[in-house]
Deep mutational scan, measured.
Amino acid sequence: LVRYRTISKIPQITLNFVDLKGDPFLASPTSDREIIAPKIKERTHNVTEKVTQVLSLGADVLPEYKLQAPRIHRWTILHYSPFKAVWDWLILLLVIYTAVFTPYSAAFLLKETEEGPPATECGYACQPLAVVDLIVDIMFIVDILINFRTTYVNANEEVVSHPGRIAVHYFKGWFLIDMVAAIPFDLLIFGSGSEELIGLLKTARLLRLVRVARKLDRYSEYGAAVLFLLMCTFALIAHWLACIWYAIGNMEQPHMDSRIGWLHNLGDQIGKPYNSSGLGGPSIKDKYVTALYFTFSSLTSVGFGNVSPNTNSEKIFSICVMLIGSLMYASIFGNVSAIIQRLYSGTARYHTQMLRVREFIRFHQIPNPLRQRLEEYFQHAWSYTNGIDMNAVLKGFPECLQADICLHLNRSLLQHCKPFRGATKGCLRALAMKFKTTHAPPGDTLVHAGDLLTALYFISRGSIEILRGDVVVAILGKNDIFGEPLNLYARPGKSNGDVRALTYCDLHKIHR
């Protein structure tokens, strides 16, 4: 019993810090008490220290592992850092350059016999395009090294910054494609005289377009951006097909006994025919423009016929181009109408809503002055909100995010209106959640004399007048207030005048 009563005193000691020596009952000389009392004092002292730490809000209350900052290894790049964003855009520009100039170089340097010394005699450094290609190869190699040090988000939505895990993730992902696209074939085969082989191998750079397509997928929600990307894709495919079309004609031209190829026909049409040795002929500019003209006309199913396939190889390629053109029509131009419709969806919704308003007016036989006010209010409210119901949009977000959005939407009023000066951010967040926005066209009466005042109004834009009878008592403008002081009276009061809008007004109100 003594032991039980001794232990039962522990909660009292913990909360009230009572010393055991003052209790005459606990001072009985028993061996059990002498053993338990020192333990009680020690526990009391420890609990006292913990309570003191909690009340003082000291940093040592938290466990040590929670006080440590997340460790980022040296030379690790955050995937959302500004440097990584700028670097990704730079790589994107280099990939676009590669997609345009690599097929052009591979096709127009394929057994090209233009006048001038061969590239091997001039030297590697004197070729501007080769120098640019070398810079692109170096940048792609540097990009691989950067990807080995860039964080990523795993399946659990955690940012991984450990170098080993980053390397394994990159090896399992895009490393092989990036490595093949970054191989400097110019340096590996330079001086061997195989410019045709170098041009063909350099087309491996186009593998990076797969990554670019995935990154550009984030802009699919913007109709104008999608339309622009589709047109660029169409032009890029036409450019690639033009390079292939020229390569076919250029390879067949020296081996044909009869002059029936499209390059021969082009030379005869523009007065620059090929001679018996295969030299001469149109310039590279004429060849490229004509090839691009043929691919565009074939892809769009126009086909004027002034550039036509004559050999079997050219006919087979033309059939493939027609098939590609039909697929592009289905996948690209078939979506253009939907994209344009999405661009004008706001206008369509406006006309639909206006039609419903006019049908309501016609069905209920609203008189002319009231009908005009109804239409003007709808037009003004639509121009202010673009038909978007803010309350319906915010309803799907958590309250903390709703408060931040409301604070942002009402920031101008909260910053410049005098009653809100000096208020804490928590108070402003709470008030912003209570605001209701209303609009009024010129001549609209917001409050009639004798109406119950259940709200306090803040003028965000425009001006109003307060009338008693036919006498203008006051004219209020931006950041002015009218209405009933909230919670100042037990019952809502009545208006002693009319409140009429002089201009288009936007008002925020808080109800009782």
Rank of each mutant, 00 (worst) to 15 (best):
A130R: 12
T76R: 01
G173Q: 08
G249Q: 03
V131A: 06
G303C: 03
I388P: 04
L230Q: 14
G281M: 01
F363G: 01
W87I: 01
L188T: 04
Y104N: 01
F294W: 01
W382I: 03
A167M: 08
R429L: 03
Y384S: 10
A330I: 03
T311H: 01
T120C: 01
Y384R: 11
P282Q: 01
A182S: 04
P254Q: 15
M179K: 01
N265F: 04
R218L: 08
G173N: 09
R342N: 04
T300A: 04
G443R: 03
K434L: 03
C400H: 08
F378A: 13
Q365S: 09
P82N: 04
E376R: 13
A348V: 13
L446T: 01
Y293C: 08
N250I: 14
N391T: 06
L92N: 01
T76D: 01
L229E: 01
L409H: 01
S220T: 04
I260M: 10
R349G: 09
V136L: 01
A155Y: 11
F83P: 05
D268M: 13
R371P: 01
A69T: 09
R208P: 03
A381R: 15
M139A: 11
G261P: 01
G426I: 01
E158L: 05
C400G: 10
A119L: 11
D257M: 06
G281D: 01
D137F: 01
R74E: 04
L370C: 03
I361H: 01
K285D: 01
T233M: 11
N368G: 09
A348S: 06
T352W: 11
S283N: 10
D133T: 07
D257Q: 06
Q415R: 07
F296L: 13
W240G: 01
D133V: 01
Q253M: 14
I244A: 05
L299Y: 01
G303L: 01
I361P: 01
L327F: 01
M433K: 09
R214D: 05
R362A: 07
L216T: 04
P419E: 08
S277E: 12
R429Q: 01
C232N: 01
N306D: 01
K84H: 01
A247I: 09
T437R: 09
A247Y: 13
L446K: 01
G346Y: 06
E114T: 15
H73R: 12
F360T: 02
V307E: 01
L279D: 11
I324N: 01
F397Q: 01
S277K: 03
E252V: 01
T290H: 05
S308A: 13
L207I: 14
K434H: 10
Y65T: 07
P442A: 08
C122P: 01
N275G: 03
R373N: 04
R205F: 01
